[in-house]
Amino acid sequence: MTSHPRFPTPFGVDPHDPLLALPKVSLHDHLDGGLRPQTIIELADEIGYQLPSNNAGELQLWFRDACDSGDLVRYLETFDHTTALMQTHANLHRVATEWVLDQVADGVIYAEARWAPEQHLAGGLSLDEAVDAVQAGLDAGVAEAALEGKTIVVGQLITAMRHADRSVEIAELALRHRDAGAVGFDIAGAELGFPASNHREAFELLHRENFPVTIHAGEADGVLSVWEAVQLCNAQRIGHGVRLIEDCDLSDPGNPRLGRLAQWVRDRHVPLELCPSSNVQTAAAPSIAEHPITWFKNQGFTVALSPDNRLMSGTSMTREMRLLMDEAGWDHDDLLWVSVNALQNAFLDLPDREALLDELLLPGFEGSSV
């Protein structure tokens, strides 16, 4: 087995970039979208799985290029390769451990690992065994980081697939693990044609049980998808939500007008988990410079910045911050603002959020030259 650096430089980042040192909060980061390329090669070799390349650098480029098509369906197909390798306790444990260490290397102090257990049963694991395997890996990563004097808090976002019919079962799974690492629930996968309202029974169960919910919406489908997530399914956060811009009239830049839903989302501080590089790849946004995240920020929406799928986008939290500074005119205060937004809306108890907020507001964040 190839030796990995414990805390590798994140995707797409200059190792000397001062933004690396800034504390960060990552709310939208898929477990199966952040594998290390060398890990993929090693796990594939163990089971004889055919990959597009057996060279780590070439494989990383293949994933990114395959996702640059502007087609969400093709983007999602790349996950066939990663999920195929995450079907045993050992592999889930390893991927989860490395996921944590990569967050630490990126300066992340709180992260939610988003993944769909129902996609990881081909090796004979039960749903509960899969969740336990990931939790053991996350815990191992946290412990390994602590040995190096690095602190991070992580949780699982248990996710159901919107094209399947197991959402109630997965909601019940999340509730069984709510005191053992599961911090929230999500639905993901192909959005267009598979509305959140198909899963209302699951969301109503979670709402009755006071369990946090975020919903992928407003990425491959438009305003109605966001409306269903917020108004029918009781989502506390929106995964992406970039197409909420379609409910805003920007014809007069000096006097933009918000539609009823956009105004509701803004005024009630419903967080938008925006992922600029990923949104550009899937054609939900035209470019980093023109990504609605900047407009939303300037209009007072509650915006959280995330990388979505670090492998597929060749990105990281640090790279997303750097892109916004270099291409969208963000400054240091904007980065602090978006980080505080994310932490305030993390699926974490208030005392724990407040403790992390002290770390986020350390003088180094405000004083660094970036």
Rank of each mutant, 00 (worst) to 15 (best):
residue 222 G to P: 00
residue 294 T to A: 14
residue 282 T to G: 03
residue 47 I to V: 15
residue 138 L to F: 05
residue 173 L to V: 09
residue 262 A to I: 13
residue 160 A to P: 09
residue 277 S to A: 13
residue 201 E to F: 12
residue 266 R to T: 10
residue 266 R to C: 09
residue 160 A to F: 13
residue 252 D to T: 03
residue 4 H to Y: 15
residue 263 Q to K: 13
residue 364 G to T: 13
residue 99 W to P: 00
residue 243 R to S: 04
residue 43 L to H: 01
residue 6 R to E: 09
residue 291 H to D: 03
residue 254 G to V: 06
residue 166 R to M: 13
residue 106 D to V: 09
residue 76 L to W: 07
residue 243 R to H: 11
residue 40 I to S: 00
residue 289 A to S: 14
residue 367 G to Q: 14
residue 38 Q to S: 11
residue 226 V to C: 00
residue 160 A to G: 13
residue 232 L to K: 13
residue 349 D to F: 11
residue 310 R to K: 14
residue 272 L to H: 11
residue 231 Q to V: 08
residue 39 T to M: 10
residue 201 E to D: 15
residue 48 G to P: 04
residue 139 D to S: 08
residue 211 F to M: 03
residue 254 G to T: 09
residue 214 T to L: 07
residue 274 L to G: 00
residue 107 G to K: 02
residue 276 P to N: 08
residue 16 H to E: 15
residue 214 T to C: 10
residue 48 G to T: 07
residue 345 N to Y: 11
residue 215 I to C: 08
residue 42 E to R: 02
residue 32 D to Q: 08
residue 148 E to H: 14
residue 319 R to G: 01
residue 92 L to V: 04
residue 238 I to N: 03
residue 96 A to D: 10
residue 5 P to N: 06
residue 19 L to G: 03
residue 74 R to S: 13
residue 287 S to Y: 14
residue 186 D to W: 02
residue 24 K to C: 10
residue 51 L to G: 08
residue 295 W to F: 15
residue 298 N to Q: 14
residue 344 Q to L: 11
residue 265 V to T: 01
residue 163 H to A: 09
residue 261 L to I: 01
residue 264 W to L: 12
residue 69 S to N: 08
residue 136 A to I: 01
residue 309 N to S: 15
residue 80 D to T: 07
residue 353 R to G: 03
residue 347 F to W: 06
residue 125 L to Q: 08
residue 105 A to E: 02
residue 341 N to Q: 12
residue 239 G to S: 04
residue 178 R to L: 12
residue 255 N to M: 09
residue 105 A to V: 06
residue 275 C to P: 06
residue 54 N to Y: 12
residue 215 I to L: 15
residue 367 G to F: 06
residue 57 G to V: 12
residue 288 I to N: 03
residue 36 R to T: 04
residue 106 D to P: 10
residue 137 G to V: 00
residue 77 E to W: 12
residue 130 A to R: 01
residue 147 L to P: 00
residue 35 L to F: 10
residue 199 H to S: 05
residue 184 G to M: 09
residue 70 G to S: 08
residue 362 L to I: 08
residue 159 T to Y: 04
residue 31 L to D: 02
residue 311 L to A: 12
residue 22 L to K: 00
residue 170 I to H: 01
residue 331 D to L: 04
residue 182 A to W: 02
residue 285 A to H: 03
residue 366 E to H: 11
residue 159 T to F: 00
residue 60 Q to S: 11
residue 216 H to A: 04
residue 35 L to M: 14
residue 302 T to F: 05
residue 329 G to T: 02
residue 241 G to N: 01
residue 215 I to G: 06
residue 258 L to H: 05
residue 42 E to N: 07
residue 121 L to R: 11
residue 254 G to P: 02
residue 72 L to M: 11
